[in-house]
């Protein structure tokens, strides 16, 4: 009539053993966090942010006595791969093209140029020929299709410490933005209103200064295009974990990383 006690006792004993086993395993299990592990993430180092500009203006360079340390070197240089210095045949440092303008900026023009009218040499196809003494100091790259490679479009032929616009107006080097404006009017208008070029400091000028940049702080007048920059690290791809141990996922086994290679440009 009553249920067979053997089966009941058997089940009870089994359950008690099960509960004890579970309890013991809970209390004494090794402490391994069941968390998604992504070993690359832990090595992520945030580069120190810098408000340095890509270029250093002639004024800044001269004022600092040739110290270019405020430049944002790592915009173009890989922090982990320091650049090597090239030496010429005579053992002197060969300035890379990208830095040539630094040397040019420090130069004293009248050391080579006596106060007389300078001439431009033209090649057979009409291109301006860079004089040999300047050839390793700068590569002209102003304007598409070499439209603006004539030195005296901007420099005064007779006075080397002066700039000149197309209509003959003379400007000092400090007034260089006005020279840029003489061709790049809309950009200059934007720059005057703060719409072009970076402003640092305070947007609320009642509380502090707003620091604006001149054209030369970002644009090399001889090759104004912004140089290529090395991009910093983006968001790490998310590994799809799930139903596998953290260790296996860390080894990279299993489902591939999402968001990996860039998608092809299809339209």
């Amino acid at each position: 009539m009553s249920p067979p006690p053997d089966k009941s006792n058997f089940v009870m004993t089994g359950l008690i053993v099960l509960f004890l086993a579970l309890g013991v395993s809970f209390v004494f299990s090794p402490d391994r966090a069941p968390v998604r592990q992504d070993p690359e993430l832990s090595k992520l180092v945030t580069p120190a942010p810098t408000t340095a500009t890509l270029r250093i203006t002639a004024t800044q360079l001269k004022a600092s006595g040739g110290d270019a340390s405020i430049l944002d070197c790592y915009a173009c240089h890989d922090e982990k791969k320091p650049p090597t210095v090239k030496l010429g045949a005579d053992g002197s440092i060969v300035f890379p093209k990208e830095h040539a303008d630094l040397r040019l900026m420090m130069a004293n023009c009248s050391a080579c140029h006596v106060d007389k009218k300078l001439e431009v040499e033209y090649a057979k196809n009409g291109d301006v020929v860079m004089p040999k003494a300047h050839a390793d100091l700068l590569a002209m790259g102003h304007g598409r299709n070499n439209r603006n490679t004539n030195c005296f479009n901007c420099h005064s032929q007779s006075k080397l410490d002066e700039l000149v616009t197309r209509d003959g107006t003379k400007l000092t080097f400090a007034q260089a933005p006005l020279l840029c404006a003489s061709c790049h009017g809309p950009t200059y208008r934007d720059w005057e209103l703060g719409m072009h070029g970076r402003t640092n400091g305070y947007w609320d000028t009642s509380k502090g200064k707003a620091v604006r940049q001149d054209c030369n702080a970002c644009h090399d007048p001889h090759g104004p295009a912004i140089p290529q920059i090395i991009p910093l690290a983006g968001p790490k791809p998310v590994l799809t974990h799930g139903l596998r141990s953290a260790a296996t996922a860390a080894e990279g086994g299993g489902p591939k990383a999402e968001g990996g290679p860039p998608k092809a440009a299809s339209q």
């Binding site: 069941p34 799809t240 974990h241 799930g242 139903l243 489902p255 999402e258 968001g259």
Partner: peptide, 13 residues
């Protein structure tokens, strides 16, 4: 526009 798939972990299950 990013695709990240989802699979529950053992702990979640």
């Amino acid at each position: 526009g990013e695709i990240v798939e989802y699979l529950p972990t053992w702990n979640e299950t």
